[in-house]
Amino acid sequence: MSAALWLRTIVGLVALLALLAGVTLFGVWWERKFIGHLQRRRGPLHHGWHGLLQLPADMIKMIAKEDTVPTAADSLLFQFGPVAAIVPAYAALAALTFAPGIALIDMQHGLLYVFAWETMLPLAFALIGWSCANKFTLIGGLRAAAQLISYEIPMLLAALGVVLTAQSMNLTTIINAQTGWWYVFKQPLGFVIFSVAMLAEMNRSPFDLPEAESELVAGYMTEYSGMKFGFVQLAEYSVLLVGSYLIAALFLGGWNMPFLPASWLWLALKIVLLMTSTMWFRGTFPRLRVDTLTQMSWKWLLPAALVNIMLVAALALWLGPKVY
């Protein structure tokens, strides 16, 4: 590994860390303001301009909060829980290409690498839920495992449609293949299945069963105090960032914008719009029940995803690469 590569990696990783922290801080503030105005109230207002100073205050308070470890809990797994939650999403960031040339690792199978980390999530939530020896977290953790497992297959199969038409798993080539018509117009069914499955992967409403506020007190993070709760929030927003990036890159044409020069600004705009729409869903949709949730994935999304692949493959072969 040459010195330049070392330098580039370290700077890249630190930049990704800053991006993650920035997205989380901005995300939490924007969510409270957006849902506030959605509910005809103002949201954070008095600390800093429109509550901007609210976020550093929350962070400082959470860092300086006591870290309680229940005696009945399995203390090693209990402390390891946040690490298992944050590392998958953060490591997946490394393979995302944010601009035509800018990516920490521009590997041939970037998409596979991201999905590999994405499958780590059910393990992390089940581990957190199991280690706290609390009945609410146990139910929350098992629900998270069941939900994420059920919605992983439709997500992978929907992404297969994109891989099939772009003929590669490298995120840059996928985005470059969408300079003309975006894939959302070529594979609308695939887009719907992928975004619904990604919403479930991100534990956002209406699929936020693992941290069901009204049933399980605070779901799998009931026993987490202070900074551990901050970590879980950091993990949630990093998964949100990765998920929004994937939807934007695979189906909404990444940094391409019709009739405009391609630049990373469009990608950032799309990601912010997608994150805001998840917040909008969180403000309006009620929660699904556990059995409707799993039924929906196995009995509707999975057959639809298989049909979608066969359809896309047939169109690709019939119309040829130039048109489709």
């Binding site: 409270r32 109230r41 008095h46 509550g51 605070a218 105090s225």
Partner: peptide, 14 residues
Amino acid sequence: FDRFGIMFRSSPRQ
């Protein structure tokens, strides 16, 4: 309440 950064949490740990 949210204007003052006061957000209700259901679990006493947080």
